[in-house]
Write a protein that binds this DNA or RNA. Sequence first.
DNA 1: CGGCATCCGGGAAGATACTG
DNA 2: CAGTATCTTCCCGGATGCCG
Lengths: 228, 228
Amino acid sequence: MKLEKVTDGRRRYHDACGTALALDILGERWAMLVVRELMLGPRRFGDLRAGLPGVSANVLTQRLEGLEAAGVVIRRRLPPPASVQVYELSPWGYEAEDILKVMGRWAARSPDHDPTLPLSPVSLMLSFRTMFQPKKAGYGWMSLGFRFGDETFVVQLAAGVLTAERGAPDGVDALITGPVEAVAAVVYGDPATVEARIDESLTVEGDRNALVRFSRWFELPPKAVATA
Amino acid sequence: MKLEKVTDGRRRYHDACGTALALDILGERWAMLVVRELMLGPRRFGDLRAGLPGVSANVLTQRLEGLEAAGVVIRRRLPPPASVQVYELSPWGYEAEDILKVMGRWAARSPDHDPTLPLSPVSLMLSFRTMFQPKKAGYGWMSLGFRFGDETFVVQLAAGVLTAERGAPDGVDALITGPVEAVAAVVYGDPATVEARIDESLTVEGDRNALVRFSRWFELPPKAVATA
DNA sequence: CGGCATCCGGGAAGATACTG
DNA sequence: CAGTATCTTCCCGGATGCCG
């Protein structure tokens, strides 16, 4: 649990400011995105690499070591016969979700934000948690399943409260299959053409109209400055 | 306003996730702490260096250029006869205060948090904004002035709402002078010995008891894990 | 194949000295 | 005081290889 192991002492800020300490822990390249990928539950090394295009294996190893030393990540070996190593956030690590959400909301106002770039499934789910507008959903119920490759997620509105988690999409109102980016485009794109984008890029089993209604509950914040 | 200038394209995350974009903008070393130092108003180059012990001049120059290119920082020349260059946050830059607060609150729960380390005056003021507990203050009024070297600040409770800003400490209930770290120790240390610590390390002009009451309005969050 | 160590090239950060 | 120039150190990213 020594922070010395996380970053070489000389590389730390040595500042009583909490923000500076957070940067000592999470400020190195990829560290916060590793936390992001773990935010919806334990993952294996290879899963993490898949959600973090561009990270090299050695850097990922270093980050996991550092985050474990700081008490953010827990390394666990699944019981036999699985016997496979997984990485998981500590309870305190899960509390970092607020950081991810606030940063995401802030950056979405940047003129440089490009929602068409590649997106990991976890990022999409977290974006739902971040950009959900309770007033637009109202007091109601709905459940949607999403399948991206072999990962599945369930997003639920229950009594006006939204949850987005990993899980089997059993008994959902609609099950959506397709590229992550296509779902993002449906939810965050122009509301006027939602149906056309659904039909051209997604497969919906069940109530297609549920997805249309769902897409109206999310809104990106307005740009802070004019796009140059 | 091209983000290409901020970080070399190859060094960016190329991810539609808002958190990743925030890291493209604020994720390089010192960047977020530069924003922190600007959070209470415009500063000059030398002021920033003073609040960021350890930063080298060339890195600070690069960060200011990058943050300006991203639209976070505005570079302004004061009108004659001052005619000096100052750096200031854009309105969107000021909105990053939420990021600093959330990160600070999170990191304060780390077993590695050491409140006795050096602290900049701006960090202390932001910590007041972050750690203030309205329930403990109640619906009341108070104004305190702080002087650190030649920088002065006013912290006010008005109708139960706390503000902490740069300003002349005129007409305050008490004016506190001393090291930033000593004020932090008084506010965040053991409540039982507040008065002793005030007397030994601070100069209070006015109502000393106001500072004692003030110190009870702030509380660091509980540690998330046991200190190893 | 998953996890991790090792080596290397490029580039960012740190320290110091220098200039207008 | 406000940066710039230069040099060194070290981190990041990529490739390779080892081991279970």
